Amino acid sequence: MSDLVPELLNSLNRRPRRPGLLRKFERTAGDEVQGVLSEARPTVDVIVELLRSDSWYVGLGVGAVAQPLPRSTRAGNGDAFVFAREAVTRAKSSPHHVNVVGTDARVAEQVETVLWLMASILRRRSERGWAVADLLSEGLSRREIGVKLGISQSAVTQRAQAAGYTEEQRGRVLAAALLEPGAAA
């Protein structure tokens, strides 16, 4: 079996730099990687990227990080790191390979629920559905996508609906909103 970590690290740490990435993703042990993000939406984007490949167990730790941050992600500590370790362990027995552990257990469970629903949608998405979803995410119009893929606008709409594109986008927004500081209030 080939080592998938170098390709994953290249993808997660690609340039231009990912918004909110405080410390780049690094291999921690074996096939495990870890990064430090400070913003909710980019965090959700990373998780969706990992869920799309369906090759990784994803653990999200939500909590405080000891300051100042060290240069290396591997040297970091604080509740977020402890929670992430626990979440990865739990993800290995999770039906959707993703788990969230955080200071506020209720919010962590809500975020995890949204991610599980999204994982269910993403797992069923066809290659044609991914093609349309990717182009919609790039900001292309349905007409432009139709021209690019050689299909009608109606077919683009049908593929987007079958792919659960709108549901995925709403899930991203909801998960990010729940992760925002003060969302539990």
Rank of each mutant, 00 (worst) to 15 (best):
E7K: 02
L9I: 03
N10W: 00
S11N: 01
S11F: 00
N13M: 04
R14H: 04
R15V: 01
R15G: 02
R18T: 04
G20T: 01
L21P: 00
L22I: 00
K24P: 00
F25P: 00
F25D: 00
F25G: 00
R27G: 02
T28A: 01
T28I: 10
A29N: 05
G30H: 02
D31Q: 01
D31G: 02
D31I: 03
E32Q: 06
G35N: 00
V36M: 01
L37H: 00
S38I: 00
P42A: 01
T43D: 01
V44T: 02
V44L: 03
V46H: 04
V48F: 10
L51K: 03
L51A: 04
R52K: 07
S53C: 03
S53E: 15
D54S: 04
D54K: 02
W56L: 02
G61F: 03
V62C: 06
G63S: 07
G63W: 03
G63H: 05
A64G: 07
V65A: 08
A66P: 02
A66D: 09
Q67H: 08
P68A: 04
P68L: 03
P68H: 04
L69T: 06
P70Q: 08
T73M: 06
T73S: 07
R74G: 10
A75E: 11
A75M: 10
N77Q: 10
N77Y: 12
D79F: 15
D79C: 08
A84K: 13
A84T: 13
R85F: 11
R85V: 09
A87R: 07
A87F: 11
V88P: 09
V88L: 14
R90P: 04
A91Q: 13
K92C: 07
S94A: 15
P95C: 13
P95E: 14
V100M: 11
V101M: 13
A105S: 15
R106H: 15
R106Q: 15
A108M: 08
E109W: 12
E112S: 12
T113D: 13
L117S: 10
L117V: 09
S120M: 13
S120K: 09
R124Q: 14
R124A: 13
S126M: 08
R128W: 08
R128K: 12
W130I: 04
A131F: 04
A133L: 08
A133C: 10
A133G: 05
D134L: 07
D134T: 07
L136T: 06
L140R: 11
R142G: 13
E144N: 10
E144R: 09
I145S: 09
I145P: 06
I145Q: 05
K148A: 13
S152V: 03
S152D: 05
S154T: 11
A155H: 14
V156W: 07
T157L: 08
Q161E: 12
A162H: 13
G164E: 10
Y165W: 15
T166P: 00
T166I: 04
T166Y: 06
T166A: 11
E168C: 13
E168Y: 05
E168T: 09
E168H: 10
R170N: 15
R172I: 14
V173T: 13
L174W: 08
L174D: 05
A175H: 07
A176G: 08
L178V: 09
L179C: 08
E180R: 08
P181A: 05
G182R: 09
A183V: 12
A184G: 14
A185S: 12
